[in-house]
Design a binder for these strands. Structure first.
Lengths: 189, 189
DNA sequence: CGGTCTCTTGACGGAGTTCAAAGCTAGTGG
DNA sequence: CCACTAGCTTTGAACTCCGTCAAGAGACCG
């Protein structure tokens, strides 16, 4: 049931079967259909999500009413609105299934408990957040150095299979431009 | 000597004097004049830096030859080119002192050792990277939802004292536009 | 097959860039 | 402590990348 997560954790630290059992008692798993919401703006983000299979996206609605996708999570990535999750404040973000998605869930009221009972998971999550921060540094660099067309071409070369999986309007906002403009870029080839 | 860091760590976890001594043996401290480089593009980033006093910035030179500042670090923040630091690969970034700056340094060859000898620091760095990732989420949201002028006005309201500390051309690139345009925004008031 | 998303296309407009030149400021050495 | 200089900021005109709006064509799901 939680094997995908255990396998992922074991890439970084060795977790005994006892520890796995304790962890299992603090997790939930859940499945969402395409377009289902795991979390909606206006609510408090109750959980941190690990994607077993499928794809989630984090987005908000800007002042003009347009959806802005700020993050994707595919297999073996964690996703949450951290500000809302950590401080249990009202969120501006939505978390939605971009495909039919299976997740493993840590709810907020178990988050601290996990680290109390399984202090060795501190290392695992230190490495996870380290990697997320590293990914953000790279992302910001691309945003600051490339034109819209270059970001699209570059993303397409780096993640050709992922581009096939999601609608173009999600990709357009993730790359920082409009769906119309993406359409025009594609027409130029 | 390392008191600023110990104080910061103690906000999150309790570190015994013994542990402080072990940690001290793995740290260095250092001071840089304004404009001095802690790390330059083309080299491998050898350290993770904690700012005791002053201000550092992380930037790269884009294809047109313009400096793009992607991150600042002031008192009690950590900064590094993580991709280069973690994998000891050649870096595209510079780390420069925006003011005269005192830092505490963890060099790469001690980074893993710190966690082996002081596993409780895993929690501290888990929380540090969690916070950095949370800051990135907020930053990306601002970049995707506001015009250049709004980002400037907003940043100015949130961090008025910080804006005084740095040259405008650094702030302009951090906010994602040119120094000329920043100047025009300011003229409009 | 009907309706609702999603993608495309084109005309127009505007936010922000580029380039160049001049004005200002702050650090440095004499 | 002043003068010089290099670096930073301002200004303006021309330009361009990308957004906006609107209308139509496809695609997908029930």
């Amino acid at each position: 049931m939680y094997n995908a997560l255990f396998a992922h954790i074991n890439r970084f630290i060795d977790l005994s079967t006892d520890e796995q059992d304790i962890l299992a008692s603090l997790l939930k798993s859940s499945s969402y259909k395409k377009k289902a919401y795991l979390h909606e703006a206006g609510e408090t983000c109750r959980a941190n999500y690990f994607v077993v299979k499928g794809c989630l996206r984090l987005y908000f609605i800007d002042i003009k009413g347009a959806e802005q996708t700020t993050q994707f999570a595919i297999e073996n990535w964690w996703i949450s609105d951290l500000t809302s999750f950590l401080f249990q404040k009202t969120s501006d973000f939505y978390i939605q299934a971009a495909e039919a998605t299976d997740v493993i869930v840590i709810e907020h009221h178990h988050y601290d408990e996990i680290f109390e009972k399984l202090p060795r998971l501190e290392k695992y999550f230190r490495l996870i957040f380290q990697k997320l921060h590293q990914a953000s540094q790279i992302r910001i660099k691309y945003l600051y150095s490339q034109t819209a067309e270059e970001r699209y071409t570059n993303f397409n070369t780096l993640f050709p299979e992922f581009v096939q999986r999601i609608p173009q309007y999600m990709l357009a906002s993730y790359l920082g431009f409009t769906p119309e403009f993406l359409s025009k870029i594609r027409a130029r080839k």
